Simulated assay, not measured.
Amino acid sequence: MARGFNYAPGASDDVEQAAAPALQRSRIAALVQSRNAVVREVLAARSDLGLGQMATLAHDRSAQVRTALAANPAAAPSVLEHLAGDRHVPVLVALLGNPATPPDVAERLSSHRKSEVRTAAASRMDGHAGGSRPTPIARAAPVGESVPPQA
């Protein structure tokens, strides 16, 4: 096999194993240490990761792995807080798209130096603020004028 091609999705049995729903915890632990970034990326999206495995993946050298973890709704709040300090924009955008990300993280990232991150944070805060916005008050008729009854 040519150098580099074993890291493509589907080119490794480990990638297929990492995606298997009934994977044993011991095998997940072994695959988290894989040299194949695609394997680690697939694992980062799993909902059954332990906190230690999430922490390991949150420090991964591959931005794609950290992006997959940031988008994972099952990720622990402490892991999401850590990922909020990542310097890669795709990681932060994925984090802001994750419904499990705490609202204070979105607020903090709303003043990020990168416009993509600020835009994603504003969108996230608008989406969550929908139920807490004040409802508009109907304008009252000026004094001395009557308001016609509605049928």
Score class of each variant (00 low, 15 high):
1 M>R: 11
4 G>T: 03
5 F>Q: 12
6 N>S: 12
9 P>Y: 15
11 A>L: 08
13 D>H: 07
15 V>T: 09
19 A>P: 05
19 A>I: 10
24 Q>D: 14
25 R>K: 06
26 S>K: 10
30 A>E: 15
30 A>W: 07
32 V>E: 01
33 Q>N: 13
35 R>F: 05
41 E>T: 12
43 L>Q: 02
47 S>N: 07
49 L>C: 01
53 Q>D: 13
53 Q>G: 06
53 Q>C: 07
54 M>R: 00
54 M>Y: 05
55 A>G: 12
60 D>L: 14
63 A>D: 09
65 V>G: 07
67 T>N: 04
71 A>R: 10
71 A>W: 05
71 A>G: 15
73 P>A: 04
75 A>M: 06
75 A>I: 11
76 A>C: 02
81 E>D: 15
83 L>M: 05
87 R>A: 03
92 L>T: 00
92 L>E: 01
93 V>C: 01
93 V>N: 00
100 A>K: 02
100 A>R: 03
102 P>Y: 04
103 P>N: 08
103 P>L: 11
105 V>C: 01
108 R>W: 00
108 R>Q: 12
112 H>E: 12
113 R>Y: 09
114 K>Q: 10
117 V>W: 04
117 V>T: 05
118 R>I: 05
118 R>S: 04
118 R>Q: 11
122 A>P: 04
123 S>T: 01
124 R>N: 13
127 G>T: 06
130 G>W: 15
131 G>T: 07
132 S>G: 10
135 T>I: 02
136 P>L: 13
136 P>E: 14
139 R>W: 11
141 A>D: 06
144 G>T: 12
147 V>N: 13
148 P>M: 06
150 Q>C: 06
150 Q>E: 10
150 Q>P: 02
